[in-house]
Design a protein around this nucleic acid. Structure first.
Lengths: 323, 323
DNA sequence: CTGAAAGCGCTTACAG
DNA sequence: CTGAAAGCGCTTACAG
């Protein structure tokens, strides 16, 4: 049987009110009484029912975490950062995925209406911007992890997409490259446009090809550039998967990396250490972003105003062998 | 303001009891009345408070998902399978990670005592077996996703580790290999022992080296075998990362794959398609396992008895270029 | 410093 | 087929 606050009160010879106070405010209770109550709580192993507390207090001590997909290569890092922070604060973390599209959104809406969580952390796919904005308008505290695209409308944590692109260009410039090929992800993502702008601002691209954030895009794009006889001495890939594909095609074509063609990726996935040659890449601080976003939301739930400006955690150029 | 059951009752001109019945059993309510109530519910956008329902009914319509780490390469697949299934059933999914060790376990215990979820899905790290077993003894429905190790004590979904190892051996045998090198993960994992037994049952290994489930282990283990002059015509790596490391060292040493040395991995991570040459590997059905485990738990919560025997979803040999 | 009582929003016997 | 009332386990004015 569940141990309730009444059991504790009875065993300690006090009222439920007093037990509740010991548990929460702590104030207004005699030292001796408090000690006795705490003893009984430990003895009985009492833990307040989250449902009851939620009902009485109108909050759930749980945050929602909404992600477009759970299988993206860096998603685990973000989730780990969020989970560690949220758990340390004694909060629960309700995971919501956009995997089933519109039905997933309906599920989120239902959980919100049910009061299942007090605040929402979100990586917002294009299709869900409206939904998330609507939740926020209805008063739900929202913090967005701004990996792809710029949404000034939300409190958010972001990284330096533009500067990351510029760092890549600077590195190539520093090693004497002047005719880069750029292979981007889908241009609908804000991050793609920012990385590209940062890069071409310093180093005009010989050629820009867009595709998906996949190894296959890396192979086909670079393969095409090669086949069409474009001249380039570097590749700036918009993520590490694209870079891996590029490396593969370059080797197959007999181009030496970095001697003939330097290659720089983006993300710094674990695999970046293991490509041949090891990949020079722009590191995105995914775990730190998860932690910071969680902290921001928790502070917000604690009463702090959510910041107007994005909290920016910088990218970092990680130099390995490919550039 | 939150729309409550009282608002609906008032607007529909019925009692809260009737609204509750329309929402839940559906039975015992006049057709006309039910229709009217449903109309009002839609109109007002009423969704029952999960906290209140949980309190009154003693359940939370939420399951807990406990994982050792969120950053393992196949974890996202499992989570996606679980999330899709759980959400489709209208349940919430509380994510619990073992990332902070003992403190994480304490957090789990607190969430359980708080009644935060009705059942637990778990990938159980060694250190947490006791905790999870204790929860089960106290009546918490538990389903274990049995990736690593065999725990007959829990209802579980498993895959064919032994047969997967045997399939790898059969493939090598079929291409005329007789002296394999085996590089395993940590022997404390049940899956490691099973894969090894399945493999050596058909094809005695020239040499067995153990290590971690990392690319680095692949490089150092195969590097050492090479340096020490061991003779082998194949490598069975216990996961794809180890296999990737092996491929790299073999190439660096001038051994052709698969001509001189065939290589087989385990898992079928996305990267397996992109190694050089593409990796032949034993696929683990991680997403399907997540789905099946979730379904099993949900059925259990619905009243079905949890199966005594593990539900086994088979591995599958995926033949690419490396063996 | 402490407690009795109302209330949070539901469900569920019980009575009709 | 329908409703009044008790109860789930807490918190929080309010009174002392």
């Amino acid at each position: 049987m569940r141990v309730t606050i009444s059991d504790v009160a009875r065993a300690a010879g006090v009222s439920k009110t007093t037990v509740s106070r010991v548990l929460n405010t702590g104030a207004e209770v005699g030292t001796g009484t408090a000690a006795r109550v705490r003893e009984v709580i430990d003895l009985l192993g009492y833990v307040p029912s989250s449902g009851a507390v939620g009902l009485a207090r109108g909050s759930s001590r749980t945050i929602g975490m909404f992600v477009p997909s759970l299988t993206w290569p860096w998603m685990g890092e973000v989730l780990q950062g969020v989970a560690d922070t949220v758990e340390a604060a004694g909060y629960g973390m309700l995971l919501l995925s956009h995997g089933r599209g519109a039905r997933s959104l309906a599920h989120v809406a239902a959980q919100v209406s049910a009061g299942a969580f007090d605040g929402l952390l979100a990586i917002v796919p294009e299709e869900a911007v409206g939904t998330v904005a609507a939740l926020r308008r209805r008063g739900m505290p929202v913090v967005v992890i701004d990996d792809h695209g710029h949404r000034p409308a939300f409190p958010s944590v972001a990284t330096t997409q533009h500067a990351g692109g510029a760092d890549a260009a600077r590195r190539l410039l520093g090693t004497g490259r002047t005719r880069p090929l750029v292979v981007t992800g889908p241009p609908r993502f804000g991050c793609v446009r920012e990385r590209l702008a940062g890069f071409t601002g310093l180093l005009p691209a010989a050629l820009v090809l867009d595709g998906e954030f996949t190894e296959e895009t890396g192979r086909t794009a670079v393969g095409r550039a090669l086949a069409e006889g474009h001249v380039f001495d570097a590749v700036f890939a918009h993520n590490d998967l694209i870079a891996a594909g590029a490396l593969r095609v370059l080797r197959a074509a007999g181009r030496r990396v970095p001697d003939d063609v330097a290659v720089i990726g983006f993300d710094d996935l674990p695999m970046a250490r293991h490509t041949e040659p090891a990949l020079t890449t722009v590191r995105q601080p995914m775990r730190a972003m998860g932690q910071a976003a969680a902290r921001m939301l928790l502070d917000g739930l604690g009463g702090a105003p959510l910041p107007e400006e994005p909290l920016v955690i910088p990218t970092e150029l990680v130099v390995r062998a490919s550039a």
